[in-house]
């Protein structure tokens, strides 16, 4: 039996009214994500990929089109607390200890103190921060804070993990380290994951499928199935298969930019017309 997609976007558009007039952030975008699938969305900065994530999370509503999350609206999914989110900033509350921050979602759903402490400790252990339970955020490094944010996102056992450039502010080494941790954690839980990123390498390393968006308004330019075997390792980044995948994603991502640059050099557009690109 083919199950319904966990997240299904159909013809989704989002227009904003700004001082400069109406801005279209997302334009009739369709995308289906299977349960347990890890999808990375990549696109030029400011193309509306964060808007996409907020609409899936029920924080913003689309101007047109429908989004279905596990059979309901995003708002219903939010109220059922199906989501775990990690943003670019760790958004830890500076007056709470690591444990207090990680257990915040449990406080909000009203679970009891012993249970909160037990779950928080388990997750802190899972993200490799055991021993720092009583530390304040100011005492943790950037990578540790982001680990804490992951623990907090997982504590309610979400069925969908939304990651909005979660490691975008970290150095490359820490970033790859956390990517591996994320892979390990994800392979244990197999939640549906939607990752917004601007790193091609990160997208290819983590995801089952990479969705490349066009510059604003965001539309799906191309989808690339990542055929690298799991469990993934950093060494795979140096394989030819990986190079090819990165190349395909890169071609789709930089397509418009390259054509524009070509036009400026006076080259005939036809010579660069990418016949291999999926028009949707």
């Amino acid at each position: 039996m083919t199950a319904d997609p966990a997240i299904d976007l159909r013809g989704v558009s989002k227009r904003y009214l700004t001082r400069g007039g109406e801005v279209e952030a997302v334009s009739s975008l369709s995308l289906a994500i299977r349960a347990g699938e890890f999808v990375a969305v990549i696109g030029p900065s400011g193309c509306g990929k964060s808007t996409l994530l907020k609409m899936v999370a029920g924080i913003e509503t689309p101007t047109a089109g429908t989004i279905t999350v596990e059979g309901g609206t995003p708002d219903q999914a939010r109220r059922r607390r199906l989501f775990g989110v990690v943003f670019q900033d760790p958004v830890l509350l500076p007056w709470r200890t690591l444990e207090g921050n990680v257990s915040l979602p449990l406080e909000i759903v009203g679970s009891r103190r012993p249970e909160r402490a037990r779950s928080a400790r388990e997750l802190i252990e899972l993200v490799g921060l055991a021993g720092f339970e009583a530390s304040l955020p100011a005492q943790l490094s950037g990578g540790m804070k982001q680990r804490a944010a992951i623990a907090r996102a997982l504590i309610l056992n979400p069925s969908i993990l939304l990651l909005d450039e979660p490691f975008g502010a970290l150095d490359e080494y820490t970033r790859n380290q956390l990517n591996l941790e994320l892979l390990r954690i994800w392979s244990q839980s197999r939640v549906t994951a939607l990752l917004i990123t601007h790193s091609i390498q990160e997208a290819v390393l983590l995801a089952d499928r990479v969705v490349v968006l066009t510059p604003r308004p965001a539309r799906v330019a191309m989808e690339v199935d990542v055929t690298l075997p799991r469990p993934r390792q950093l060494a795979q980044l140096r394989t030819r298969e990986c190079f090819e995948l990165v190349g395909r994603v890169s071609a789709a991502l930089y397509d418009r930019l390259e054509r524009e640059a070509g036009r400026e050099r006076g080259e005939p557009a036809a010579a660069l017309a990418p016949g291999h690109l999926d028009s949707r």
Binding site: K54, A57, I59, R81, F87, Q88, I108, L162
Partner: peptide, 14 residues
């Protein structure tokens, strides 16, 4: 309260 914290609390349906 910054925007991302507000979003986090929205997602948690606080």
């Amino acid at each position: 309260v910054d925007e991302q914290t507000t979003h986090l609390l929205r997602v948690l349906d606080a």
